[in-house]
Design a protein around this nucleic acid. Structure first.
Lengths: 182, 182
DNA sequence: TTCTGTTGTTAATTATCCTGAACATTTTAC
DNA sequence: GTAAAATGTTCAGGATAATTAACAACAGAA
């Protein structure tokens, strides 16, 4: 899986918010090529892969140097949140197992259309959050989901990721990350 | 030239002291493939290139991350050495222009068959030397030469390089490098 | 709904890679 | 010296990549 070109390309493309056709247009190849590469149904030439990556843009060295973390459970349904605490104060905890997790909790607010940008965020640590209001589009590696109130995410920050508010009402997220950003 | 696969491959192969056929055998491809790739007469598939590099062995990421310094004058004939000093003490200086060159002079002695090994040496700085006795095979990037007494070399140490005594008599070299090794 | 546009995938044709077997040179051994 | 082995290169063929054009699934707007 370390040299799984298809998965790598799909992951990179998704994080940059490009469709197969859009990337193909920028790269000067056809969408079928992108599709076949991503599904590992063909073995692209170095030149073709370079052209594709130029459409990102990304260098070959960077592409092959990408670490591909093992996919982990990244999304939780609203009713999958573990209920912690009780009485007048109630916590709903994302991810049942907190062993080897150290988090700093935060509250984030995304204006309509707000976006962390096409550049892929990657840093050490882990992060997670719960959407409390509005909708949030979360991209993690090759997975992309639009989350609504009560839904949550949790992932290893070394995976390339991106956040965007696709709706036209503000979005509020209770999020957390480790180690403290900045 | 930054993505000149042929030159990169040839350079790597030479430094590892492999013939096209020997590398082809290890990689499970034909020597024609190696030849065509190195002369940039074809655009290899990623899979094929990976197989070839496995025969080195070298990872794709490392291969594409290799910096390709601009080729510089690397070899000097015996009579190209600049005569410095005079009288009872005489220096023969490699490379006429010493501006932005800082060197530490050393004397090296290679027993018959001695070899710095197949691993590619690369480090910051520059190095040069003069063969005073015997013969020395010097590989610098994609250039390989066997030097005899009076002949010399000088190059940027970031280029992959290797030294070997191919003869059966001892070889003595007056060499120099910067910054001091160790 | 129905339409329009976009998504990713798949089949058939064209273009290209990769091989297998030759070739000319050079190196090494005798 | 010649012979034999090893080097890198080139050419015709079968294998494979990349294109073109179609397909089905889905989303959003009228």
């Amino acid at each position: 899986m370390a040299t799984d070109i298809g998965t790598r390309l799909r992951s990179v493309r998704m994080v940059h918010n490009l469709s197969q056709r859009e990337l193909a247009r920028r790269a000067g190849v056809t969408n079928a090529t992108i599709s076949l590469i991503e599904s590992n149904k063909m073995n692209p030439s170095v030149g073709a892969l370079k052209r594709v990556l130029d459409g990102i843009p990304m260098a070959l060295a960077e592409f092959f140097a990408l670490e591909m973390p093992t996919r982990q459970k990244a999304f939780y349904a609203a009713d999958e949140l573990t209920e912690v605490g009780k009485g007048s104060i109630s916590f709903r905890q994302v991810g049942g197992d907190l062993s080897d997790r150290r988090l700093q909790i935060m509250v984030e607010r995304y204006a309509p259309g707000a976006d962390t940008g096409r550049i892929l965020l990657r840093h050490d640590g882990e992060e997670g959050g719960i959407v409390t209001r509005g909708r949030l589009e979360v991209t993690i590696g090759d997975q992309k989901r639009i989350l609504g109130p009560g839904e949550a995410y949790y992932f290893d920050s070394r995976q390339p990721h991106r956040f965007r508010n696709p709706g036209n009402e503000p979005c509020e997220v209770v999020s957390a990350c480790t180690p403290p950003t900045f």
